[in-house]
């Protein structure tokens, strides 16, 4: 039995449908159901829905053998897992954005509002730029608008939210998409089944 952690929400549902297409569907599954755990009748797979940012925790601690998680989360938390496949779903990018008329003043530390503090620290230390992190949990765009930060580091999908708040992207840090990850120990003991799932998924997303 392979335990699979899926991120709650649209991405997780898309991934489930991909898995169902390659033979890992469950009768118990329905989009309306609020059940957190469901299994297939043959006992090959068991799925559970978790908060997207927690998928890597479940996989690293072995509660799930494999899981699907955004590259943004992997970059931020650097979990000790194998990263086996780029599913090409949930594509977006990690960006530095600011008010469209913003000019950098390198004589003072840059104030960066973000949920992704490690990502921001790593990026700016690579640039040799002193920063002050302002850790926010949502509505990051408000940082520059209300003047508590100079820039934000956040995920940008279409850029609509940025435009509507008079912000624009200054730098793209990296591309993000959903990745299939595996617990290292599970990969030793259930390697055959895991490699099977990876190969079948790789075939359908080609």
């Amino acid at each position: 039995m392979i335990n699979i952690a899926l991120p709650k929400g649209r991405l997780g549902e898309k991934v489930y449908k991909l898995l169902a297409r390659v033979g890992y569907g469950c009768d118990e599954y329905s989009e309306e159901s609020r059940k957190l755990v469901f299994k297939d009748s043959r006992g090959e797979v068991s799925y559970f829905w978790v908060k997207p940012a927690d998928v890597s925790v479940y996989v690293e601690l072995g509660a799930a053998d494999i899981g699907v998680v955004g590259k943004d989360i992997l970059n931020e938390y650097n979990p000790d897992v194998y990263e086996l496949l780029d599913l090409g779903l949930g594509k977006c990018s990690m960006c530095v954005a600011a008010k469209s008329d913003w000019k950098d003043d390198i004589s003072v530390p840059l104030r960066v509002a973000t949920k992704f503090s490690h990502t921001a620290e790593k990026y700016f230390s690579g640039q040799g730029r002193d920063i002050e992190i302002i850790k926010l949990n949502g509505s990051i765009e408000l940082g520059p608008v209300l003047g508590i930060s100079d820039v934000i580091v956040d995920i940008v999908e279409t850029g609509t939210t940025l435009r509507e708040n008079d912000l624009k992207v200054f730098t793209k840090i990296n591309d993000i998409s959903a990745r299939l990850i595996s617990n290292k120990s599970a990969y030793k003991f259930k390697g055959g089944e895991i490699k099977n799932i990876v190969a079948k998924l790789a075939e359908v997303i080609k």
């Binding site: 690293e60 601690l61 072995g62 617990n183 290292k184 120990s185 030793k188 003991f189």
Partner: peptide
């Protein structure tokens, strides 16, 4: 070294 059921090395 890994042991079945233990998630880390």
């Amino acid at each position: 070294g890994y042991i079945d059921g233990v998630p880390h090395c």
